[in-house]
Design a binder for these strands. Structure first.
Length: 441
RNA sequence: CGGGGUGUAGCUCAGCCUGGUAGAGCGUCGGCUUUGGGAGCCGAAAGUCGUAGGUUCGAAUCCUAUCACCCCGACCA
């Protein structure tokens, strides 16, 4: 834990007014809460509190990938054009790819994704059918030179993405890898405090039925989505995910009901659902594909089979927009006063509000509580500034920490302090001991 | 890339039409008073008016070019 988290010294440049550059809500709140600063169109610097949230999301994504048996590595942001020429995508990608020349005039690019890179790694180092199955992933910055970046970090040009790649020798095994990632995604988004619904996605020229977008529901979502209402009741964390077992039943349970994005929807099926149909706005936060030998064949990625013959690798790729999730979570979790962080990704669990900085009694009590909570491993942001109460409350509501621990002279006279739950607005008057107990439980 | 819009103090904006050498609120800094939901008073610092040309005695203001950013569309984790 960082040594000291006092607002008097923490770099949290909150804005009272909304900068003109931001239109969408999450973008406004991120700027106002001092989380990011735009560097140029679609490119952002992450300020301390924004980075803290980004890291928390990243950690959850990583834990769930690891749990599913994926192994983390790290590939570079800058790639050689040669690999992309091999797969045929160097020309296909178009101006969305940021192309760079190094001092020797060699063609390079800032990676928009890493299929070629991972295929190159795997073909060079994995030689036998015994080297599969494998799922490899990394969490790395990508660049896509979008025609029109917008919505703040939700559609930036530079973005942090988790991308996994699976390697198998049969389509059947590849499907098992797909199920693992499918389940890992359900768990990941649920842990992030989101209701994510897998929806059939367009597989493009590759064909097949194995591609899903994970869409979270938010009123300000970018696209229209349709699904059976049963999805709203399903809880991914309640199911036991045995990654060594058969995950097909889980996959089936989550895919047999109707769910579709605007591009894929089917009015006939929707009409048949009747009252069970939910129409909502959604934000795509993950996308998984099975694409077979699309890259392994042109790039010559094979392993030697039991019979001594080369087998082209069956592959899939699985993406999560990590930086996009920061904005997406805010879109799904906010009110008029500001952000309401799910506890799992909150930059701090508790905001300690000293209502009368400079008063011996409140200062003393705050120091005591601050020390006790930190000793118990609770992430606390202590507002020790010499500001008025109203301003402190407004700041706390804006930055959306799950709990506000309010210490003022009035309450202290009675030996009491207050705990406010940001999500519900509920306030409880408690003794300091009870409050600490509540927040460390 | 097509269409629309905006660039003036850290932020939100006024001033531009009708040219005369830059303002307000918030924030910041100092002081006093306040102290349970973005307080009040006094004082201060802070802007090559996006940039470059042009017109003019004189340009934030008029003209031209250019850059940046935002919105709608096509495209996307």
């Amino acid at each position: 834990m960082v040594r000291d988290m006092r607002l008097s010294t923490y770099f949290l440049p909150v804005l009272k007014e909304t900068p003109n550059e931001a239109q969408i809500l999450s973008h406004r709140l991120m700027l106002r809460a001092g989380m990011v600063r735009q560097a140029s169109a679609g490119i952002y610097s992450w300020l301390p509190m924004g980075l803290k949230v980004l890291r928390k999301i990243e950690a959850i994504v990583r834990e769930e990938q690891d749990r599913a048996g994926a192994q983390e590595l790290l590939m570079p942001t800058i790639q050689s054009a040669e690999l992309w020429q091999e797969s045929g995508r160097y020309d296909a990608y178009g101006p969305e790819m940021l192309r760079i020349r190094d001092r020797h005039d060699r063609e390079m690019l800032f990676g928009p994704t890493n299929e070629e890179q991972i295929t190159d790694i795997f073909r060079g180092l994995a030689k036998s059918y015994r080297d599969v199955p494998k799922i490899l992933y990394h969490i790395q910055w990508k660049f896509r030179d979008e025609i029109r970046p917008r919505f703040g970090v939700m559609r930036g040009r530079e973005f942090l993405m988790k991308d996994s790649y699976s390697f198998d020798i049969t389509a059947d095994d590849a499907r098992k890898a797909y199920y693992k990632m499918f389940v890992a995604y359900l768990r990941t988004f649920a842990r992030l405090g989101l209701k994510a619904i897998p929806m059939r996605a367009d597989t493009g020229p590759i064909g097949g039925d194995l591609s899903h977008e994970f869409i979270i529901l938010a009123e300000t979502g970018e696209s229209q989505v349709f699904c059976h209402k049963s999805f709203l009741e399903m809880d991914p964390l309640s199911l036991a995910a045995d990654y060594d077992g058969d995950l097909k039943p889980v996959f089936d349970a989550w895919t047999h009901n109707y769910a579709a994005t605007e591009e894929m929807h089917d009015p006939a099926q929707e009409a048949a659902l009747g009252d069970d149909l939910v129409t909502a706005r959604g934000i795509e936060v993950g996308h998984i594909f099975y694409f077979g030998t699309k890259y392994s064949k042109p790039m010559g990625a094979t392993v030697t089979g039991p019979d001594g013959q080369p087998i082209p690798l069956e592959m899939g790729s699985y993406g999560i927009g990590v930086s996009r999730l920061v904005g997406a979570i805010i879109e799904a979790c906010h009110d008029d006063a500001g952000i309401i962080w799910p506890e799992s990704v909150a930059p701090f669990k508790v905001g300690l509000v000293n209502l009368k900085s400079g008063d011996a009694a409140t200062d003393g009590m705050c120091e005591t509580l601050y020390g006790q909570l930190r000793a118990a491993g609770v992430d606390v942001l202590y507002d020790d500034r010499d500001e008025r109460a109203g301003s402190k409350f407004a700041t706390m509501d804006l930055i959306g920490l799950p709990y506000q621990l309010v210490v003022g002279p009035k309450g202290l006279k009675e030996g009491m302090i207050e705990v406010k739950t940001r999500a519900t607005g509920n306030r409880e008057t408690l003794t300091p001991e009870a409050a600490v107990h509540l927040l460390t439980a």
